[in-house]
């Protein structure tokens, strides 16, 4: 464990908690892409199946349980409890255009052709594009609530910190995982446009609104 991975995990945890609390307290999921949240639930489910097969540490196991629990709770709030506030018209990204290519790629490019490894690889590839429905929705509505931008910032920051963690681990441990690194770079690049808007607008107290 290093400081970058620790703060990456904490940033990811913060994002998940911010979103869950935002929906719960405001009793509304307006502006939130339910499709992205379903993709994240799939990402955690397919990646953390090793909860059933191996124990790494209390930290590792508890964080995985929290991620899975919160992501399913968020999906439940969006599609069940507060479904009346779900903005399905703007959440129109065709996720099948993500899942099918990612699934095919996971079968073709992986470290080991075993079920757990292919599911893990699928999860890594899917995570790198899972935020697209959310970013697409914001581009369609032309704006985002400030709390939603904080959620997105933490979500984007987490994988950016993981990139530094992988540089650290390569230099000090000789460890690297090309699949995770390439997917992590793609994932972080997808947030660059948002990061720019976040720094130039939200951090200056303005509302995040895109030129219509």
């Amino acid at each position: 464990m290093n400081i970058f991975r620790l703060f990456g995990d904490l940033s990811h945890l913060a994002a998940i908690i911010i979103l869950l609390l935002k929906i719960w307290k405001s009793r509304s999921c307006a502006g939130i892409s339910g499709k992205s949240q379903i993709l994240f639930a799939i990402v955690f489910t397919t990646r953390y199946l090793d909860l059933l097969t191996s124990f790494i540490s209390l930290y590792n196991t508890s964080m995985k349980m929290i991620y899975i629990g919160c992501s399913y709770a968020t999906v439940y709030l969006i599609y069940a409890k507060f479904r009346a506030t779900y903005d399905g018209n703007h959440d129109s990204f065709r996720v099948e255009f993500l899942i099918v290519p990612v699934g095919g790629l996971a079968v073709l490019i992986n470290h080991d052709f075993s079920l757990l490894e292919i599911l893990w690889t699928f999860s890594i590839y899917l995570e790198s594009v899972a935020i697209l429905p959310q970013l697409f929705m914001i581009s369609k509505t032309g704006e985002a609530e400030t709390i939603t931008t904080h959620y997105l910032f933490c979500q984007g920051l987490y994988r950016a910190l993981y990139l530094i963690n992988w540089i650290w681990r390569f230099y000090f441990e000789g460890f690297f995982d090309m699949i995770a690194i390439v997917a992590g770079v793609v994932q972080t690049i997808l947030y660059c446009d948002f990061f720019y808007l976040y720094v130039t607008k939200v951090l200056k107290g303005k509302k995040l609104s895109l030129p219509a």
């Binding site: 995990d9 995985k64 470290h111 460890f175 690297f176 995982d177 995770a180």
Partner: peptide, 10 residues
């Protein structure tokens, strides 16, 4: 070689 199979990250 990538030691990708060592899954200790979240």
């Amino acid at each position: 070689c990538p030691i990708g199979s060592r899954k200790d990250e979240l």
